[in-house]
């Protein structure tokens, strides 16, 4: 075949046919550069979200109120680290290494989910993070597991399986607090009030505003629209909230019998973009934390490498 324009367009056509026929794309397969870059952007952002997400939860690990709660929270945060790791590995198959991704995160070139730029202020926030944030993530990740890139889809399957307990433990915390004393109930409601809208924003801008959506859908990097996923999440969550006596902090919340959807007030997108741009309550803190401990680990990594080299020489 000639290496000319037509051969590229031929490859692109072949590639799109594979996608249309639900054949997974594997690392060594030909892929358009834009597909590769789009995936690197999305997957590394996903990996960074897992890693940065450890911080707001880690904020309570030393203060967990029971031994059981401490073990659960530790195991959950550990899973986040593991999931970040799986995702970094999957992204590495696209030809970028972890070192570079970490640099991009610390330099602000790569993003992570804005939800983690909000602070965890009381113990119920650990419940809300599990119930709402992981709940939203599961809706999203179940969709991503059907995506076109093999390594990403496989990582998602494994992650979805392991995260089965994350949302349940969060809801359990909320349920226990709603069954508890007055100040526990107050904490739970306060927590929902603060996390509700940010969790809706996790699905990203409306379909009409989303810059990457159309191409991502065509390539099956995403297989459902932001608004569809958000609605599914709202419907599930509203019922769960009511079930334990929580009030959704939205005066306009109404049930539409025809569509069987819970309808909400317009989302405050100004707030969303403001946080994405780096002006959320914890943006700087999260990156400063990551950078600080990354730098503090530098001498350890250096020592391990020097040791490994010496070992190799002995052999």
């Amino acid at each position: 075949m000639q290496k000319n324009e037509s051969s590229i367009s031929f490859l692109e056509k072949q590639f799109q046919e594979k996608i249309n026929n639900d054949i997974k794309i594997e690392p060594k397969d030909w892929m358009p550069e834009a597909y590769r870059n789009n995936l690197i952007r999305q997957m590394s952002q996903h990996a960074h979200s897992e890693i940065i997400g450890m911080q707001p939860e880690g904020n309570w690990v030393l203060r967990a109120p029971t031994l059981r709660a401490k073990k659960i929270l530790l195991a959950k945060i550990q899973d986040e680290a593991g999931h970040g790791l799986y995702l970094y590995s999957a992204t590495e198959t696209l030809g970028i290494d972890r070192k570079e991704m970490i640099e991009q995160l610390q330099q602000g070139k790569a993003k992570y989910s804005s939800i983690f730029n909000y602070p965890t202020l009381n113990w119920a926030d650990i419940g809300a993070v599990g119930w709402l944030v992981d709940g939203a993530a599961i809706v999203n990740q179940t969709m991503l597991a059907r995506g076109s890139y093999g390594p990403y889809s496989r990582a998602m399957l494994r992650i979805c399986k392991e995260e089965g307990f994350h949302q349940r433990q969060g809801y359990e915390i909320m349920a226990k607090m709603m069954a508890g004393n007055a100040s526990q109930k107050e904490m739970a409601q306060d927590s929902l009030n603060r996390w509700w809208e940010p969790s809706l924003m996790m699905f990203g801008p409306h379909d009409s505003e989303s810059t990457h959506s159309e191409q991502s859908m065509k390539w099956k990097i995403k297989v459902e629209s932001n608004d569809n996923l958000r609605q599914r999440f709202i419907n599930k969550t509203v019922d769960q909230a009511h079930h334990i006596g929580l009030t959704i902090p939205d005066k306009n919340l109404t049930y539409n019998k025809e569509t069987r959807n819970w309808e909400i007030s317009p989302i405050n997108w100004e707030e969303f973009w403001n946080v994405v741009k780096g002006n959320g309550p914890c943006n700087r803190q999260r990156i400063a934390h990551h950078t600080k401990y990354h730098n503090e680990g530098q001498w350890v990594r250096e020592a391990a490498l020097v040791f490994a080299k010496k070992e190799m020489e002995i052999q």
């Binding site: 450890m54 911080q55 195991a75 945060i77 680290a81 680990g297």
Partner: peptide, 19 residues
């Protein structure tokens, strides 16, 4: 050891210390 959560020298070591 739980204080090391999200502060390990590598991601893998973070998991090891939490374990």
């Amino acid at each position: 050891l739980a204080e090391w959560c999200s502060q390990g020298p590598t991601l893998e070591e973070d998991l090891a210390l939490t374990n």
